[in-house]
Amino acid sequence: MWNFFKQLASPPHFYRLAATIIPWLAVPGLLLIAYGAYAGLFLAPEDYQQGDAYRIIYVHVPAAYLSMMAYMFMALGGAIGLVWRMKLAHAVGAAAAPLGAAFTFLALVTGSIWGRPMWGTWWEWGDPRLTSELILLFLYFGYMALRSAIDDTAKADKASAVLALVGVVNVVVVHFSVEWWSSLHQGQTLFKKGGPGMDAEMLYPLIAMIVGFTLVFGALLARRIRTEVLHRERRTRWVREMILSPAGGR
């Protein structure tokens, strides 16, 4: 087991392995998304309260979920990189940040599009989840700004890892304080917790979408980590040998 991790953490091995894994993540992921989108848009029944507008959850929930997951990847990558000085782990953090920001942006925009017919406004501060997502987006911006401000890669890795770890503690505090705050101001949430109230016909497409998005996220992340590894290892021998080999290594 330990050997497997050691091998995975070696940049040349990961670079090659990721290339074979990406299609195995992307193809099932895209199939699940195709099913989920079709079923969610056309087969699932109308919601008795929200009408057809609720169908936005089929993209909103996966995006919101991945926005958190990407942050977890960033913080875990940072922690592993700091503690075990694993170079690949820092590359994971660097690759996860822009993806996480993209999904946070999507969660915000789709949430706001949903809010328009439901609340009559594009933005409702009383909704704790939208507010938390907005703060999360700012955390991503801070992380990326710190990374780009430090020229030395090794230093940028460690500094941003510290920031990501501080941020992960903060995300928990943000969650609870925003919940408390919106309860003071009679905040309204669109998305009720838990699925028992949901019909199976509504729920299955949602689960398919969440799993599909996660797989596609894995593929997108793997591709970004490959790029990151290639850039970081550009002066090493294995990159040189790989590029000079007849097969190449794009």
Binding site: A37, L41, E46, G51, D52, A53, R55, I56, Y58, V59, H60, A63, A102, F105, L106, V109, T110, I113, W114, R116, P117, V216, L220
Partner: peptide
């Protein structure tokens, strides 16, 4: 979708476009 089509379709479209 009973007048909600614009919102639903633009959400789906935007999500796939960004990805």
């Amino acid at each position: 979708m009973g007048n909600y089509g614009v919102y639903v379709w633009s959400s789906f479209g935007l999500t796939f476009a960004v990805i």
